[in-house]
Write a protein that binds this DNA or RNA. Structure first.
Lengths: 220, 220
DNA sequence: ATTACTAGTAAGCGAGTAT
DNA sequence: TATACTCGCTTACTAGTAA
């Protein structure tokens, strides 16, 4: 949708055109939008064609109402602003289920980790991690976690090797509870590793390539 | 502000660029905005010139952060969406104080009205109404009151004449409590009549032509 | 008064490319 | 790899005006 049409739609909504007919001439609308009468008229024609407004054209005046389609579009926009300014305790990602390398299983089966997961997260994870690939550009959102308080899993040693610290954040995947694990050393990547009490692939019926929604919660 | 720049700013904010530097190439941004690398680059230059973002240009990547000015602009936008979808129990107007015809005083001094104001609104109004002229196009917002429950002041008679019914809504003008009165018969006009316990012109130090903010509250 | 078409002008776009 | 310039093309804008 063209940005200027969205602005026009918003202006109409502000004047009460959601679930209500409002009476507004193209010249009045033009003044609101700080443009010409002709342009305002064109905007209305375009919005009408897209089914975002409904018009009743009289000889002197026109009645305008935002349609359900138009309202939805505005609500989408509203949600985005809420994400920016209100839902600041969480980050929302869309991603694709990825076939892991089986590494996750090796780590989640280490007693040193399991014991801490149980203590600090309150569950023993199903072996393995569910890997989700996010859009490369969205890794920027992960930066927000940088200065935030995490659930820290401490490093530990076995006879053979050392297992590094891990930061965890409570999270949901398609509504199911769990946590994401971020190894402390590695750089932020575009792959999220999700652990859960459940076998998520089975519970949520996930196959490689499926789109999922992940919400990560944090404090501050 | 150009609509497409606002959309760009919002996109950056969604990626976490408020109070945070994010790492994003013009090509990545272009993908997010569904436009070309050149256009995204131009947008960033424009936003930078307007002081809405701050950039650190490296050879390979650029770090971008939304500035205070940019954040304010986004918050303004957020507020408008809140007005559309959340603050549905009120209407907000900006208007100009208008010199009345003295009619208000005549009506507000009628015992038949005074008694009902005291009973239903909880105060005896200072004699006279404060008249506020709103933008002509904003009279559309008043339509929202049409189907809404009002505080109804009943008609009554004196020896000489009949005084008609009036609908009242609790309201605030520049933060001060009172009510607006809408005569039942008259068509919605672009003049709001405000009554209050206080002498508002004095209390708020208002002169003709001063800009005021009025909030009208209603239920459903 | 309105809306909205036409036509000429201005602004925006993106391919090519320098840096 | 990047960013962002030039330039030809397209889209958007508004004055004039018909309906």
């Amino acid at each position: 949708m063209k940005p200027y049409l969205l602005q026009t739609l918003k202006e109409l909504a502000l004047l009460g055109a959601i679930k209500n007919k409002i009476e507004i001439s193209s010249l009045e609308l033009a003044k609101q939008l700080e443009t010409s009468q002709q342009t305002a008229s064109r905007y209305l024609v375009e919005l009408d064609k897209k089914g975002m407004i409904k018009r009743e054209l009289g000889i002197k005046k026109q009645l305008i109402m935002v349609t359900g389609i138009g309202e939805e579009k505005l609500q989408e926009e509203h949600l985005q602003y809420k994400q920016i300014f209100e839902l600041t305790d969480r980050i929302i990602f869309k991603g694709k289920v990825l076939s892991g390398l089986g590494e996750g299983r090796y780590y989640t089966e280490q007693d040193g980790y399991i014991e801490q997961f149980r203590e600090k997260l309150g569950f023993v994870p199903y072996p393995g991690t569910l890997n989700v690939e996010i859009e490369y550009v969205e890794r920027n959102k992960l930066r927000l976690l940088k200065n935030s308080k995490a659930i820290n899993i401490e490093e530990f040693q076995t006879k053979n090797r050392t297992f590094g610290s891990v930061r965890c954040f409570r999270a949901k995947i398609n509504g199911s509870d769990g946590a994401i694990v971020l190894p402390l050393r590695t750089h932020y990547s575009n792959i999220l590793e999700f652990i859960s009490y459940n076998h998520l692939r089975e519970k949520l019926n996930l196959k490689d390539g499926d789109e999922v929604k992940i919400v990560i919660y944090f404090e501050n």
